[in-house]
């Protein structure tokens, strides 16, 4: 009875997610930022941060059976990026992290078994990375840039991001398979 009550209390609020699961998503968000920061030291290639963002967003959704896991990870990563001053988007940084998360969540909602397939993961990674096009387009439109230039600018920004996003998603199927084999993921 007490256990039942505790479980009920634990699940209440915060999108109905367990605290330990929420903390794991928080760690995924931390890893996204750590790798972003670390690789900015050595590389200066457009879109390379998508490699880690897509990997950890897919991992978050693949490990936690919560429908908005990737979006929540993106939201946490966006907030942390704002707090730590990573990136140059200000409050618009949230958009850059949440949009890919939302796309991954939608993909997982439509095809729950997508984390086992390389092709589906790559597809989800590519579509999620392409959200960089939208975020760049929105920012440039708000600035009042010429339409054809907005398109080219967003295309340059998102093209490389898609390639890196696909590369990041290729790590997901073996990782999820192994975690399932170890019994870490049980759904």
């Amino acid at each position: 009875m007490i256990m039942k009550e505790r479980k009920g209390r634990e699940k209440a609020g915060f999108f109905n997610i367990h605290l330990k699961d929420a903390l794991f998503l928080g760690f995924c968000a931390v890893f996204i930022l750590i790798f972003r920061a670390a690789f900015r030291l050595h590389l200066n290639i457009t879109g390379h941060s998508m490699l880690f963002s897509i990997f950890f967003l897919l991992l978050a959704r693949g490990c936690i059976s919560f429908r908005l896991a990737a979006s929540l990870t993106g939201l946490l990563a966006g907030c942390m990026a704002i707090i730590l001053g990573l990136g140059k988007g200000g409050p618009l940084l949230l958009l850059r992290f949440v949009l890919p998360g939302l796309i991954i969540d939608m993909g997982a909602f439509c095809i729950p078994s997508m984390f086992r397939s390389y092709v589906l993961c790559a597809l989800a990674g590519a579509v999620a990375s392409s959200s960089k096009f939208l975020s760049t387009y929105i920012v440039d439109t708000m600035i009042g840039m010429e339409k054809s230039i907005i398109f080219q600018h967003a295309l340059i920004e998102s093209g490389a991001a898609i390639l890196f996003g696909i590369a990041g998603s290729f790590f997901i199927p073996p990782v999820i398979r192994r975690l399932k084999a170890y019994g870490v993921i049980d759904y």
Binding site: L19, F31, F171, L179
Partner: peptide, 29 residues
């Protein structure tokens, strides 16, 4: 993947579980 990423993820989950337990033991919420 086998030597670092998977054990790293398992360790992250363990740490998250420990923090959640500690928080709940102190009547978090």
């Amino acid at each position: 993947v086998h030597c670092l990423i998977v054990p790293g993820i398992v360790q992250s989950m363990a740490v998250a579980n420990q923090i959640a337990l500690a928080a709940k033991a102190r009547d978090f919420g």
